[in-house]
Amino acid sequence: MDNKIDTGDSYVIEGKLALPYTYFAGRVGSTFITTIRDKHKIMGVKCNTCDKVFVPPRQTCERCLEDIRENWVELGNTGEVVNFTVVRYEDKHLPRKVPFVLALIHLDGADTPMVHILDGVDPEEVKIGMKVQAVFAEKTTHTILDIDHFAPV
């Protein structure tokens, strides 16, 4: 049986949407980024009620809704890989040439892991529990990529 659908005489409109936007980081997010950029320090915020240190930081604790914007805690620039994946497909939005590793890193002193690029190690050699440290970017982009990547200690 012929399963082919006849698509003759069917007009297809080619389109492209431009989606310009800006995003305001908020004061807590701004401090986090500028402290990484200017001081090479990673900061979290602590909820005293829930006894949790959040990174990236936030203005309110989403669990108890307490205002925690002033409760800054300096975290170590070192931590431990708690999970990871190897990116093996190529695409324009990706931050590195493949293959590269995206890892969940539990920074010393934090209760929540943050995601970042893990470099300086063969993807096949990455292990959960691996000790890593932040490597800061030489040129700022005023984004989370002011930490260029994490690398094994």
Binding site: Y23, F24, A25, G26, R27, V28, G29, R58, Q59, T60, L65
Partner: peptide
């Protein structure tokens, strides 16, 4: 500019 979206909602 002083707040992000979740902060404004909050």
């Amino acid at each position: 500019e002083d707040v992000n979206q979740p902060e404004m909602i909050h």
